[in-house]
Design a protein around this nucleic acid. Structure first.
Lengths: 146, 146
DNA sequence: TTGTCTGCAAACTATTTGCACCGAG
DNA sequence: CTCGGTGCAAATAGTTTGCAGACAA
């Protein structure tokens, strides 16, 4: 598990400690392999061990973000989502406002757009935090049927 | 003021009423000519008339969104921003995580990207709600100087 | 042992809602 | 006159924080 190693190394380097709670949060993020709210992560951690507090989950997620192992994004429903930057590294997400689905889009695919914004505005796009709202194929088809 | 007319027409059509509070919120949005938080809008409305409640501001903003005269977006600081869709219509925003600046980008400019997502994923991008996080030119230059 | 981390509870903040009165149509 | 809209206050919901005790190193 390369990301756990990276995590432990960074913890050591900066004088932080490796606690079972931190391991559990990281493991849960690994299982999920996608976005999740703090509460969803909390629920899964609870399945493994009760008496882990939601505030610890938040604190761990903050730490993981400082280490660039996780990115967070705000959807319009007011719940922040957290994504583990796994082996694939930074990528963007299409977010369906209809069914709520999040669809991953590789950084490669976003690249032309990133370069365009760079050229036109000197703006450096943060691909890992890019959320693209809209309507997914399934929902569009469902809509056309009616 | 074309958008006020559009507003009044839609109000009438749907049996809603035109109140001074609703006019004030719309006027403030007009003055601002850009994004603003509910609280910022509330403050400006207060300058014109005290005893207008923040809940009325929220309710009016919701109404304006239903009428497609305003779009809202969530930035990572947990405060929702509201933008009046003026004469220019829907457009996207570059958001600098460094200085907080919001830079408008026309729908035309986003068009190639929209078509790409359409072709590759059948996903219909909602240009008006698209927030593109990153670092703006000024902040990048400031960073390079150090 | 030492100082970080945790659980608990309380605080915060942005937003939403219930309700009785007010006022636009 | 009617009933949609408002101000007020209280409720929510997600997230953050203070603190005393727990535990990794």
């Amino acid at each position: 598990m390369a990301c756990e190693e990276a995590f432990i190394r960074q913890l050591r380097e900066r004088g932080f400690r490796l606690t079972p709670q931190r391991e559990m949060v990281l493991n849960v993020l690994h299982e999920i392999e996608g976005y999740a709210t703090a509460d969803e992560i909390y629920q899964r951690v609870q399945e493994i061990s009760t008496s882990v507090d939601i505030s610890t989950v938040y604190r761990t997620l903050e730490l993981l973000q400082e280490f660039d192992l996780v990115v967070s994004m705000d959807l319009e429903d007011g719940q922040r989502r957290y994504v583990l930057l796994g082996v694939h590294g930074a990528h963007s997400h299409l977010q369906c406002r209809c069914c709520g689905a999040l669809i991953g889009v590789s950084a490669d695919e976003i690249e032309p757009f990133v370069e365009q914004m760079q050229a036109a505005h000197g703006f450096e796009v943060d691909v890992g935090h890019l959320m693209i709202p809209g309507v997914c194929q399934e929902c569009r088809e469902a809509r056309e049927d009616s």
